[in-house]
Simulated assay, not measured.
Amino acid sequence: MITLADVHRAAALLEGVAERTPVESSRAVSEIAGVPVHLKCENLQRAGSFKIRGAYVRMAGLSDDERARGVVAASAGNHAQGVALAARLLGLDAVVFMPTDAALPKIAATREYGAHVELVGSSVDEALVHARAYAERTGAVLIHPFDHPDVVAGQGTIALEIVEQVPDVATVIVPVGGGGLAAGVVATLAELRPDVRVVGVQAAHAAAYPASLALGQPTPAPELRTMADGIAVGMPGQVPFDVLARAGTEVRTVSEEDLSRALLLVAERAKLLVEPSGAAAVAALMAAPGEFTGPVVAILSGGNIDPQVLLRVVRHGLASAGRFLWLHVRIDDRPGALADLLHDLAATGANVMHVSHVRTQVELAVDEVAIEVQVETKGPDHCAAVMHALRTAGYRLTD
């Protein structure tokens, strides 16, 4: 059991260590959700995510003998940075096992905080196997990313801040990986504000909790295939699972398109940079407008995103939002035909980004050319207007 007293003790330990992150209201997200929405900006936390809270509380409670043996952790990046920073603040040696495809900025930041990083396996779960083996071999203390009461209590300090910052909060939406953050919020609000509904969110292609809660025990996720590496965890932790199961917490799933659209919306309209997992709560609001009682607090759990991933996600989000249009057009194979097409596209206000000119397709007539054009638009309505204008002008568009 994690009690409110445990969370208050954790808050005392975190004084001067973790930031009291701001809560920003968002008119854009509120309009989509149909209720007032506030964003709890843990992306602005030290080390870029909420993880410093739980990691520091866990490590601050170690005995002198345990501290002398050092600590070991496994993480895709956020917990790694939280452990590395906490170890530096507490003067401990830290080894962190990270998946081989972990984001380069997260690896670099973890090393810069002073931890020794080992790249192993293709997932957090595989890295955790290596971390456990290292702990058994060396005596280092394993700092689990979510499956420990101290970690859960540390994450629960976010709920203390939310209640003070948004006193009339009715719903809190939380990204869920292993479940430590959600469990901390649920355990805290169960005593402090039992009237507040807590909803967890997982990526649909990395969702262990819905089936686990239905079966009554932690169950492996059938797949781990998501851009949201911060919540791509194959198995719920027993400690957070017990908290969420006892409370009957609902855990929803969101698609990759939902995540990318949410990340883009938060960046464009709220001027906040988050990683895909950090956008999960907003993705849930956008995917199910009208289903949440307001005021809603959506926790932006982290902002540690690889610029290369950011570029791909933004492109994906633009496409999902109808801001890109891929046109396949057949035109006559005559001089000036392509120039006419581009002129007519320009007249619609669409911005041409890429053109492919193909003469050798089986389905083409001898006097036809296939043109593939990628254009930037102003949204779905503009996409429809562009296609209508081209069809009206006599162009043959194919799917």
Rank of each mutant, 00 (worst) to 15 (best):
V297A: 15
G290F: 03
D6L: 13
Q45L: 14
G336D: 15
V254Q: 09
D65A: 15
P175R: 12
G121C: 07
H357A: 02
A393R: 14
V37Q: 05
A389V: 11
V369W: 05
E376T: 06
I305T: 07
A350S: 11
V362D: 13
I52T: 02
H205T: 05
E15F: 00
V314E: 12
I173Q: 06
P218M: 06
L311G: 01
G179V: 08
A87N: 05
Y56S: 03
P240V: 06
R197K: 15
E376Y: 10
V141T: 12
V329M: 07
V174I: 12
V169N: 14
S320K: 07
A60Q: 11
S320E: 12
L181Q: 03
V29I: 15
G336N: 14
D168S: 07
I305L: 10
A187Q: 08
L390Y: 15
D229E: 10
V152K: 01
R27I: 11
H144V: 05
A86H: 07
P145A: 11
A28I: 09
G302I: 06
H382K: 04
A103G: 05
A281M: 04
N304G: 09
R132S: 00
V362W: 10
S260Q: 01
V35S: 13
R391T: 13
G70C: 15
R323N: 13
R132N: 01
E223M: 14
S63E: 07
F324T: 10
I143L: 13
A55M: 04
Q45S: 09
H130F: 13
L273R: 07
H38V: 14
E191S: 09
V151P: 06
T100I: 10
D399C: 00
E15I: 06
G114W: 12
V23H: 07
S30M: 10
A211I: 10
I173E: 03
D150Y: 02
P307N: 03
A76K: 01
D229I: 04
G48P: 00
A339D: 12
T249G: 03
V297F: 12
V23R: 05
G303T: 06
P218W: 05
D381I: 11
H144F: 03
V83Q: 02
A284F: 04
L192G: 08
V366P: 01
D125Y: 03
A279N: 11
G178I: 03
G178R: 00
G61H: 12
A321R: 11
R58M: 06
R88A: 13
R69P: 12
V166I: 02
H79Q: 04
R132F: 00
R197D: 08
P236Y: 03
D168K: 00
C41A: 14
A5D: 14
G179S: 04
L44T: 08
V282F: 12
A68V: 07
H148F: 01
A103M: 11
T157W: 06
V297E: 07
E368A: 12
R315D: 14
R312V: 08
A347E: 09
R261Y: 03
L273T: 06
V201M: 09
Y395G: 09
K271N: 01
L89T: 09
